[in-house]
Computed example of a mutant assay.
Amino acid sequence: MSDSDLHTPDGIRVEMIDVRGQMLRVAIKSGDDALPPLLMFNGIGANLELGFPFLTELTNRRAILFDVPGVGGSPMASLPYRPSTLARMSKHLLEILEIGEVDVSGVSWGGGLAQQFARQYPNICRRLILVSTSTGWTMVPGKPNVLSKMSSIKRYTDKGYMRSIAAEIYGGAFRGDDTLINQHAAGMKPSSNAGYMMQLLAMTGWTSVPWLWRLKQPTLVVSGTDDPLIPVANAKLLARLIPNSRLELIDDGHLFVVTDPKATADLIEGFLLEEAL
């Protein structure tokens, strides 16, 4: 069933797909069939529309992005889930789409899910991109007042509240350009309280530290130098623990994927086209 959202950019289709009993709202960007698609995982509470600016800047790469259960247009899951559950659900989605190999990226909360997918399905995940993310509960935390605002679903249900706190929680370009905040808020769709809480609970107690050293995929770790939510020390830790990794620091905040989608897309596509290390 096709999505009727009139704001979907050219080259992207949005549809509802039944993944073994769980309906998922999925965005699929067209591109070169000879290249592995990019499977993307969004941040907590983020609907797939928030990824459209980045998707439209990809020049030749197919991409897949979906609303996790209880977020955006995907209905709630019948049971609580863990990162391993969502990784398995993503694998089943790829099977439905007849895709056998992908590159995987994850932003913030979605970065944990990307790490889990790479560990769980090393034969499917060719390369890994970790953006503004951490190792889970073992992370170097941001400031308590910033984390308390981030943990509230109000930033996704109240656009005025989002505008009032965006500079404080996201840092970087949001600090000096109100138009960026307005554009980001315009793309938001409210998540349910239950869906947001389910995402928070999914990562409770989860950490990738014990097994990051076993990841074989070439990995790009990218972080903003002015990230109040997930300080840059977390990216440095990821790059140190993942054997075949490279660290790139961006002079921006937590959501440089949103504030400068073209530069981010260029960086990621360049990494994906590199020869194997």
Rank of each mutant, 00 (worst) to 15 (best):
H92M: 13
N234S: 12
T8H: 12
F256E: 06
K91T: 05
W206N: 02
L180Y: 07
M40L: 03
P9I: 09
K149V: 08
G21L: 11
D67V: 11
V68G: 13
I44M: 02
E269D: 15
S192Q: 09
G11N: 11
K236Y: 13
G21M: 07
L128T: 04
V221C: 09
T135W: 03
D158C: 08
G51W: 03
N60T: 10
P37G: 08
T259E: 00
N145S: 15
D33F: 06
E168I: 08
G51Q: 07
Y81S: 09
G110T: 04
P144D: 13
I17L: 10
D67F: 02
D18A: 14
R246H: 09
P122L: 11
E248Q: 13
G43P: 03
E275G: 12
G176F: 08
D178S: 14
M203T: 15
M198E: 03
L35T: 03
K143N: 15
V26L: 03
L215T: 02
T138I: 08
G187S: 14
A167E: 08
A77K: 08
F271H: 10
F271C: 09
E15P: 06
M203S: 15
L147W: 08
Y81V: 06
S152N: 10
F174H: 00
D18R: 10
A233D: 05
S191R: 07
L249T: 05
L128S: 01
Y170G: 05
D177S: 05
N244I: 05
S151I: 12
M150S: 06
L238I: 02
G43N: 10
L229G: 00
S132D: 01
N244P: 04
A173V: 02
L180R: 04
F66D: 03
I12P: 07
P37H: 08
P141Q: 01
S148Q: 15
H7D: 12
L65A: 05
L215I: 14
G100K: 09
L272C: 12
W109K: 04
R127K: 14
S30E: 14
I12D: 03
V221E: 02
L38S: 06
K29R: 12
I230K: 00
T59R: 15
K91G: 04
D252P: 06
P231V: 13
A34G: 15
N123E: 15
R119F: 13
V140T: 14
P9F: 04
I230H: 01
P37N: 11
Y121E: 01
P210K: 12
I28H: 11
T204C: 11
Y81L: 14
T219S: 06
S90W: 03
D252K: 06
I129V: 07
C125R: 02
G31W: 03
G172C: 03
L247Y: 10
T179M: 12
L113S: 06
V222P: 01
I12V: 12
F256D: 00
S152I: 01
N234L: 04
I242S: 00
G171L: 05
V209N: 04
P69A: 01
L58F: 09
M197E: 13
R126Q: 13
R240T: 09
G45V: 01
G160L: 03
G100I: 10
K189P: 10
P36D: 05
L48W: 02
I64H: 07
E275H: 14
